[in-house]
Amino acid sequence: MSVDKETVAKIANLARIEVSEEELESTVGELNNILDWVEQLSEVNTDGVAAMTSVVAADLPWREDKVTDGGYREKVLKNAPQAEHGFFAVPKVIE
Protein backbone atom coordinates (compact mmCIF):
# COMPACT_ATOMS: atom_id res chain seq x y z
CA MET A 1 0.00 0.00 0.00
CA SER A 2 1.20 3.49 -0.70
CA VAL A 3 -0.11 6.98 -0.21
CA ASP A 4 -0.70 9.74 -2.76
CA LYS A 5 -0.99 13.50 -2.38
CA GLU A 6 -4.68 13.32 -1.72
CA THR A 7 -4.25 10.76 1.07
CA VAL A 8 -1.44 12.73 2.68
CA ALA A 9 -3.57 15.87 2.58
CA LYS A 10 -6.35 13.92 4.27
CA ILE A 11 -4.04 12.51 6.96
CA ALA A 12 -2.54 15.95 7.56
CA ASN A 13 -6.04 17.31 8.03
CA LEU A 14 -6.90 14.52 10.48
CA ALA A 15 -3.68 15.28 12.37
CA ARG A 16 -4.39 19.02 12.21
CA ILE A 17 -1.02 19.88 10.74
CA GLU A 18 -0.86 22.43 7.94
CA VAL A 19 1.14 21.05 5.02
CA SER A 20 1.78 23.37 2.09
CA GLU A 21 1.42 22.25 -1.53
CA GLU A 22 5.24 22.02 -1.95
CA GLU A 23 5.69 20.08 1.30
CA LEU A 24 2.94 17.69 0.22
CA GLU A 25 5.05 16.37 -2.65
CA SER A 26 8.12 15.53 -0.54
CA THR A 27 5.99 14.19 2.30
CA VAL A 28 4.38 11.66 -0.08
CA GLY A 29 7.85 10.31 -0.90
CA GLU A 30 9.00 10.22 2.72
CA LEU A 31 5.91 8.41 3.94
CA ASN A 32 5.99 5.90 1.12
CA ASN A 33 9.62 5.03 1.87
CA ILE A 34 8.64 4.18 5.43
CA LEU A 35 5.42 2.39 4.46
CA ASP A 36 7.27 0.27 1.85
CA TRP A 37 9.78 -0.69 4.51
CA VAL A 38 7.21 -1.70 7.15
CA GLU A 39 5.34 -3.66 4.48
CA GLN A 40 7.66 -6.62 5.21
CA LEU A 41 5.46 -7.44 8.20
CA SER A 42 2.91 -8.87 5.77
CA GLU A 43 5.17 -11.91 5.29
CA VAL A 44 4.79 -12.88 8.97
CA ASN A 45 2.09 -15.43 9.65
CA THR A 46 0.00 -14.05 12.51
CA ASP A 47 -2.98 -16.37 12.19
CA GLY A 48 -4.39 -17.07 15.63
CA VAL A 49 -1.93 -14.67 17.33
CA ALA A 50 -3.45 -12.26 19.83
CA ALA A 51 -2.48 -8.61 19.48
CA MET A 52 -0.23 -7.34 22.29
CA THR A 53 -2.16 -5.26 24.79
CA SER A 54 0.36 -5.07 27.63
CA VAL A 55 4.03 -6.04 27.89
CA VAL A 56 3.77 -6.79 31.59
CA ALA A 57 1.14 -9.25 32.75
CA ALA A 58 -0.50 -7.20 35.46
CA ASP A 59 -4.04 -6.32 36.40
CA LEU A 60 -4.75 -2.64 36.44
CA PRO A 61 -5.07 -1.44 40.02
CA TRP A 62 -8.52 -0.52 41.26
CA ARG A 63 -9.44 2.21 43.63
CA GLU A 64 -12.55 3.62 45.13
CA ASP A 65 -14.41 5.95 42.79
CA LYS A 66 -13.96 9.17 44.71
CA VAL A 67 -12.25 12.46 44.11
CA THR A 68 -8.70 12.31 45.44
CA ASP A 69 -7.13 15.30 43.79
CA GLY A 70 -7.97 18.45 41.90
CA GLY A 71 -9.01 22.04 42.43
CA TYR A 72 -6.06 23.48 40.54
CA ARG A 73 -7.76 25.88 38.17
CA GLU A 74 -5.02 28.49 38.42
CA LYS A 75 -2.24 25.96 38.00
CA VAL A 76 -3.99 24.35 35.05
CA LEU A 77 -4.39 27.70 33.32
CA LYS A 78 -0.93 28.99 34.20
CA ASN A 79 0.70 27.79 30.98
CA ALA A 80 -2.16 28.62 28.62
CA PRO A 81 -1.30 30.94 25.73
CA GLN A 82 -4.60 32.73 26.47
CA ALA A 83 -6.80 32.34 29.54
CA GLU A 84 -9.78 34.52 30.39
CA HIS A 85 -12.27 34.50 33.28
CA GLY A 86 -10.84 31.24 34.56
CA PHE A 87 -11.12 29.43 31.22
CA PHE A 88 -8.93 28.54 28.26
CA ALA A 89 -9.65 31.06 25.53
CA VAL A 90 -9.75 30.07 21.85
CA PRO A 91 -10.48 31.98 18.64
CA LYS A 92 -14.15 32.72 18.05
CA VAL A 93 -15.96 29.58 16.85
CA ILE A 94 -19.51 30.93 16.30
CA GLU A 95 -20.58 33.88 14.21
Binding site: M1, V38, A51, M52, V55
Partner: peptide, 15 residues
Protein backbone atom coordinates in the same frame (compact mmCIF):
# COMPACT_ATOMS: atom_id res chain seq x y z
CA UNK B 1 -6.06 -3.81 10.80
CA UNK B 2 -3.43 -4.01 8.08
CA UNK B 3 -0.86 -1.94 9.95
CA UNK B 4 -1.50 -1.34 13.61
CA UNK B 5 -3.24 -4.58 14.53
CA UNK B 6 -0.77 -6.57 12.45
CA UNK B 7 2.16 -4.89 14.22
CA UNK B 8 0.68 -5.60 17.65
CA UNK B 9 0.38 -9.27 16.68
CA UNK B 10 3.99 -9.41 15.52
CA UNK B 11 4.88 -7.74 18.79
CA UNK B 12 3.29 -10.67 20.62
CA UNK B 13 5.51 -13.02 18.57
CA UNK B 14 8.62 -10.98 19.40
CA UNK B 15 7.81 -11.11 23.13
Amino acid sequence: DAYYLKAQKVRTLIA
